[in-house]
Design a protein around this nucleic acid. Sequence first.
DNA 1: ACGCGAGGTGTACGGCGTACACCTATAACG
DNA 2: CGTTATAGGTGTACGCCGTACACCTCGCGT
Lengths: 241, 241
Amino acid sequence: MPEPEHPAGRRPRLTRERVLEEAVALADEAGFDGLSMRTLADRLGVVPMALYKHVRDKEALLDGMVETVLAEVPPPPDEPGAGWKAAARTRVLDTRRALQRHPWAWRALETRPAPTPAMLDHMEAMLRILRGGGVSPQLTHHAMHALGSRIWGFTQEVGASGPPPTDPDEIAAVMAAMAARWPAVLESAMSAGHDPDTTVGAGCDDDFEFAFALDLILDGTEALDARGWTPWEGVAAGAEG
Amino acid sequence: MPEPEHPAGRRPRLTRERVLEEAVALADEAGFDGLSMRTLADRLGVVPMALYKHVRDKEALLDGMVETVLAEVPPPPDEPGAGWKAAARTRVLDTRRALQRHPWAWRALETRPAPTPAMLDHMEAMLRILRGGGVSPQLTHHAMHALGSRIWGFTQEVGASGPPPTDPDEIAAVMAAMAARWPAVLESAMSAGHDPDTTVGAGCDDDFEFAFALDLILDGTEALDARGWTPWEGVAAGAEG
DNA sequence: ACGCGAGGTGTACGGCGTACACCTATAACG
DNA sequence: CGTTATAGGTGTACGCCGTACACCTCGCGT
């Protein structure tokens, strides 16, 4: 029965778009490590090797997935409104929001051995914000490096665990161990500072920390720009003069 | 031939220390992906399963390797010399030097799901530098976040490729493509700025960029500290006032 | 002298990415 | 309308990976 538009629909032909779409969905649900050529093929009702007709290999699949996610970032407005700093800030936070919808994305991004076209587009847009705002090429270059992974909207906290222990006894034990050997770590964990009535320890607001660091860099860059900083002043010229 | 004390010496008994030592050496030579339980066992002249008598699993092996590398970082002096900023700077750069000797280490660090004791020790030392210098608990907390992976001595450049193409034709082709679609990226690549007579494009000094970003954060934190900043001022209070 | 336990071995399983040969349904064309 | 080329899906297989589990074999304390 050659019924191409069967009610349930003859399984639609695979396309690169469908593959990427389902790969993103699968990674969203199963995490970065839950995504394999085999699980993806299963999800598409197809044999693993079928995927290779649409992506060269898994690396290319990841490239495409990054492309897909980056396409979700709203483009910067043509008209820079309130200066480059605000525009850059908005763009970074926009990117962060897109990446936060796909928690696996930073691992994909970090393992790209070379910038993909979508990544270059993304960088290009950010560079134009700075250069268009009159920041010198040199300072722009260094600022991009300083922003580093923040440009991409993520900061992987080294050693950030999953959910903290919920068992009160266990919490107490951990706290005791900390107090003995790592008192400063313990104090710092209790010193989120924003939102005073937050639950102790767990109350660290990632968005605040991200914005704080971002503003430190943007404000610092702005200050250097305002003073006409040049690299020849030496490395630590930031706030010394 | 049961020659127990063969001239070359009976293969010494495996110890956790020997396992970790050789694991580090292997990763140094073969890279992070070249390290597997099997290749490591080969190197030790032993069957893969023998390793499991000394490390619980591969995750624990990586924990131990991180421990080993972090032990190479010189401890901070008890006497803070020239203020917390200089001390923090020195410690970060010391850490960076240790990590640079083991290029695989950032991947191991980044994939630790929870901080290991050695990592907590490391953080503790840095926190004490700030707190000992009189920085408030809140600002210390945020500064630690802002320093982020820089505390650990690395900043993985997203999309940083290996060696750039050496074939002149290929270079020309890449440059042409960039000029057409990513002119700002191209300009930025040519604008390293430090060391004017560097080869175009390839002359970006990672150490300079690292130090630049580090100083941006440390100087910014210092300025906030000097003015008695508190989180209630709001996120972007950095340089607005 | 003996036995016991720490430490090294062998085999095996299930997962991964993917090379390669094969089949099949479609669409272009004489 | 029949033929045929081909894009796209299939099946099998290989060589890696981490590691569970049963086993053996020393060397040491008794």
